[in-house]
Design a protein around this nucleic acid. Structure first.
Length: 217
DNA sequence: CAGTCGCG
DNA sequence: GGAG
């Protein structure tokens, strides 16, 4: 039988780790919000279903994505962009639920970023095998605001790299309820997710949901 | 190059 | 031969 610490670990008490001067892992920070988060997520998914985006290179992303908020992030052969309209439905993205905003603002403040006002929340759905290669979040006009990233469901190995693609990336296991916040001098750090291991979560099944909050403009 | 692939 |  195979078994390791990565499979067994899951933070149940809140704690804080500093990855860099402007980057923090807030363990279990989102747990008090989960009961309200999940029904809000179900409503968003019904209005703007998850879809696999195509990169400018013509490849299908393994993560399934949707968005909520005034603006949503999308990609196609023409490039990456933020849009007020969901290109799949032709309608506005669902509004940012109050509980989403409360969680994002309190996590940002906990990491030292007061007054965070995101207008976009990108929602990524991972299944075992799904990955996100090293990239920068640089489609926003405002790099003064941090990125707030919430993990729900099965664990994932987060890669936190440097400001250059070839910089060696730190590996940070992320579990249900963990929140990562990075901004200031670390706002443009490369980051990604290794292919997820097979796992099952009691609330979310064989999936990981990631909420990423950004101030776009 | 938010991708896959080849190489080592 | 597999992971990164």
């Amino acid at each position: 039988m195979t078994f390791d610490l990565f499979d067994a670990l899951e933070a149940t008490e809140q704690s804080q780790e500093q990855l860099a001067p402007g980057a923090f892992v807030l363990r279990a920070f989102a747990l008090p919000y989960v009961q309200q988060l999940l029904p809000a997520l179900a409503a968003i998914e019904q209005a703007s279903p998850f879809r696999h985006l195509i990169t400018p290179g013509g490849f299908r992303m393994s993560v399934a994505m949707t968005c909520c908020g005034e603006l949503g992030w999308t990609s196609d052969r023409r490039g990456y962009r933020y849009s007020a309209i969901d290109p799949d439905t032709g309608r506005h993205w669902p509004p940012l639920p109050t509980v989403f905003l409360q969680l994002a603002q309190s996590a940002a403040a906990q990491a030292g970023f007061d007054g965070f006002m995101p207008e976009a929340c990108l929602i990524n759905r991972y299944e075992p095998g799904t990955r996100l290669t090293l990239h920068q979040d640089k489609d926003e006009l405002d790099y003064g605001a941090p990125i707030v990233s919430v993990s729900l469901g099965i664990p994932a190995m987060f890669l936190f790299g440097g400001n250059a693609r070839n910089d060696k990336a730190a590996r940070v296991p992320l579990f249900h309820g963990d929140v990562v916040v990075w901004g200031g001098p670390d706002r443009l750090r490369f980051h990604g997710i290794l292919p997820l291991k097979e796992a099952e979560h009691s609330l979310l099944g064989r999936q990981r949901i990631n909420l990423t909050f950004r101030k776009v403009a």
